[in-house]
Simulated scan of single mutants.
Amino acid sequence: MFRLSGKCVRHTKIVLSAVIGDESSEKSRTEKVLGAVTALAAEFDLPSPLWLEKNIRDFKRRARTHFTSDNFLEPLPFDYLEIEVIEE
């Protein structure tokens, strides 16, 4: 089972957190990640973040990355959104 953890952090404190799971065997890992990020954004009432080269590079290396205000078109009520794969 695929699970992705998401945390919104403001001033070093977690203000929102959630875990999204996907049991589908037909989807690729990329589809699962993008779907989970979209689901996290919806749960936190945010627009989906833009994936920049830095995010892609970090995620490929460590299966985690964080999205700052540069990744969103609207102002954020927190400092960054961190995502991490916790189970595959």
Results as ranks from 00 to 15, higher is better:
Cys8Lys: 08
Asp45Thr: 14
Leu34Lys: 15
Arg10Glu: 10
Asp45Cys: 14
Thr38Trp: 10
Phe44Met: 12
Leu46Thr: 10
Lys32Thr: 06
Asp22Phe: 01
Lys13Leu: 13
His11Val: 11
Ala36Tyr: 05
Lys13Arg: 15
Arg10Ser: 09
Val19Trp: 00
Val9Ala: 02
Ser24Gly: 07
Pro47Asn: 15
Leu16Gln: 07
Leu46Val: 07
Val19Phe: 04
Ser5Val: 01
Ala18Ile: 04
Ser5Trp: 11
Glu43Leu: 14
Glu31Gly: 03
Leu34Met: 15
Ser24Cys: 08
Ile20His: 03
Ser24Asp: 09
Ala41Trp: 11
Ala18Gly: 10
Asp22Ser: 10
Ala18Glu: 06
Cys8Glu: 13
Pro47Leu: 15
Glu23Gln: 10
Leu34Pro: 12
Ser17Gln: 15
Ser28Tyr: 03
Leu40Asn: 08
Leu40His: 08
Lys7Ile: 05
Lys27Trp: 04
Leu16Lys: 11
Thr38Asn: 14
Ser25Leu: 02
Ser17Ala: 14
Ser17Cys: 13
Thr12Pro: 01
Ser25Arg: 03
Val9Tyr: 01
Glu23Cys: 07
Val33Ile: 14
Glu31Cys: 00
Gly6Arg: 05
Ile14Gly: 05
Lys27His: 07
Glu23Asp: 13
Ser28Asp: 00
Val15Pro: 01
Arg29Ala: 08
Glu23Pro: 05
Val19Arg: 09
Val33Gln: 01
Gly35Ala: 05
Lys7Gly: 03
Val33Cys: 01
Leu46Gln: 13
Glu43Asn: 11
Val37Asn: 02
Ala36Cys: 05
Lys13Ile: 10
Val15Leu: 05
Ser5Leu: 12
Lys13His: 13
Gly21Ala: 12
Gly35Asp: 04
Gly35Thr: 05
Ile20Asp: 00
Ser25Lys: 03
Leu34Val: 14
Glu26Thr: 10
Glu23His: 09
Ser5Phe: 06
Val37Ile: 10
Leu16Ile: 00
Ala42Lys: 13
Asp45Arg: 15
Val15Met: 06
Leu40Pro: 06
Glu23Ile: 07
Thr38Ser: 14
Leu16Arg: 10
Ala36Met: 03
Lys32Ser: 10
Ser24Leu: 07
Ala18Lys: 09
Val37Leu: 06
Ser5Ala: 11
Gly35Leu: 04
